[in-house]
Design a protein around this nucleic acid. Structure first.
Lengths: 133, 133
DNA sequence: TTGCGGTCTCAAGTCGGCTTGAGGTCAACT
DNA sequence: AGTTGACCTCAAGCCGACTTGAGACCGCAA
């Protein structure tokens, strides 16, 4: 059993965040002793799951609560599938940004973004995509 | 030459965002006619570059301005390299979340996160990692 | 000449996810 | 007995990146 400070350190977040997650219904402590929260093994794993999903930067606490809390009301499965698709899309965006920055760092051109044809490839594509969508 | 509305549509953001980017020094219009902003070819590419980087969700407008605006004061190169490393790390985080959610959707267990060993792999790793760091 | 769509500025509001501060309890040391 | 240190609650504050609302201007068409 872990008290809030140790639990927060293990999960890699602030103590105040754990209290907030409790309040918002994501992960409640296994119990309390003299008012203080105590987290068990099961709770630690649920906390880690929250962190894993939250670190994507793409899910609200409510959505995460639906997964981690086990409350399956409504069309959470559909919502989750669309999140999965968005995560894949985001990976592609990150890959693009990575390529862009990598080339930017190496490009000898003085105004790379507007001059270098390699870099304009990225922005051309973005402008064409948005024209379509 | 494009007026703000068309430019915003092409780039895929709101008109108010383009005005905000102008105000914050990211991309200014090529010129004005009767007060209205007009964007040229070069500006469109710079706007697209802003969107590309901003969509990572990992860079502030100030950092993006340093890249897109061409003002290279200070150690922006070092900052950019660390951003690049963070983007790569984020891609791994997304891959983990993807695997987690994929299995969660298919797992027949009633409380997958705490019961399924395949899912506990993810959270175990997270708890161990944070112990180290 | 009246109306319409698109533009403008400026100040204030919004959102999620915490963080911070004030004021207090509790158990363990010295 | 007093002093840490870790915990508690509750309300308010913070942050970035916009968004919204009010009030006004511009050019063109019916």
């Amino acid at each position: 059993m872990w008290q809030i400070g140790e639990a927060a350190a293990k999960v890699g977040v602030a103590v105040s965040a754990l209290r907030y997650w409790d309040e918002r219904g994501l992960v409640a402590p296994a119990g309390r002793k003299a008012g203080a929260r105590w987290y068990g093994d099961e709770e630690m794993h649920r906390l880690a799951a929250v962190k894993l999903l939250q670190d994507t930067g793409m899910m609200s606490l409510d959505e995460i609560a639906a997964i981690v809390g086990g409350r399956s009301r409504g069309d959470w499965r559909a919502a989750m599938k669309s999140r999965l698709a968005e995560i894949r899309a985001q990976r592609e965006r990150l890959a693009a940004a990575e390529g862009f920055l990598e080339h930017f760092l190496r490009c000898p051109s003085e105004k790379p973004i507007v001059q270098c044809p390699r870099m304009r490839d990225y922005t051309d594509r973005a402008l064409r995509d948005d024209e379509a969508g």
